[in-house]
Design a protein around this nucleic acid. Sequence first.
DNA 1: GCCCAGGAGAAGG
DNA 2: CCTTCTCATGGG
Length: 303
Amino acid sequence: MTAEERNGVVFVESVKDFDLDNIFDCGQCFRWEKTETGMYLGTAYGRQAAMSYDKDKELLKIYGSSLEEFEGIWRHYLDLDRDYSSIKHILADKDPVMAKAIEYGQGIRILNQEKWETLISFIISQNNNIPRIKKCIDSLAATLGKKIGEFDGREFFALPDAETLAGAGLDDLAPCRLGYRAKYLIETARQVAEEGLDSLKKLGDDSVSSEETFEALKRYCGVGPKVANCIALFSMGKTDRFPIDVWVRKVMNRLYGIAENNMKEMELFAAKNFGRYGGIAQQYLFYYITHNKEIADEDSNIF
DNA sequence: GCCCAGGAGAAGG
DNA sequence: CCTTCTCATGGG
């Protein structure tokens, strides 16, 4: 993989195991959208960005950027230094079900997202559907966040920081239509503002075990097992975490024959068969089931 | 009009 | 420890 910049566009060559459709539409992030031309617009780490990827040329383009920004932000954000090819082989060997799911979502990569953004995003995600989650988050950014950029006349906003959100009231959040989650958000913002953002960031250190991170995250208001696992996986590099939502329950039942309400057995199965890459395996499965609704609707498994 | 969504907290066993 | 109820909102 090599990167160079020409006229404000960063060209990254030889990018393999990569597909923006898979990456941005596998439920791990909510702030990217595809344009008519196939380009993706979105924000991360306080930056607004535009990206496109040519599969045949294995070429990733990042517009309006610089080599410094690529090295400082996007390289890590897009998880470009992880060898997904070897991970896919480890997961697919001796598991034809996983092999099929991986083939379907071959370009998935687990983003390294901002911790605070991931924390509040997945609090909003609970008992909610993805299109509406996106609307809620966009509305929250536009209502309380700072403007960080513009593209084709469209404005982009960062999410409000913990102090801003901690100082807000339910009436301030009312336009965002967060429902009962609004009070969770304010309470968690107060917790983070009081402890300091560093205490949240420390949970992503390599010296902190995945289990410790999981338990610590559950102390935040509105964060239970599923949301804690998502935050640990999508923003803290804890690739073994295995978030179980309604879709994962379906796919574990349809494809592996585990009873749909037996979460314990699903966790044990993931730990035993997917190990340290449980979270990555989970993303292949989630993408597979959410893009093949006919499998999700089957009333029996498909062995 | 109805069921459901990347669930969690509270109450009661 | 586990089970059940409730919680806003609107997508499909």
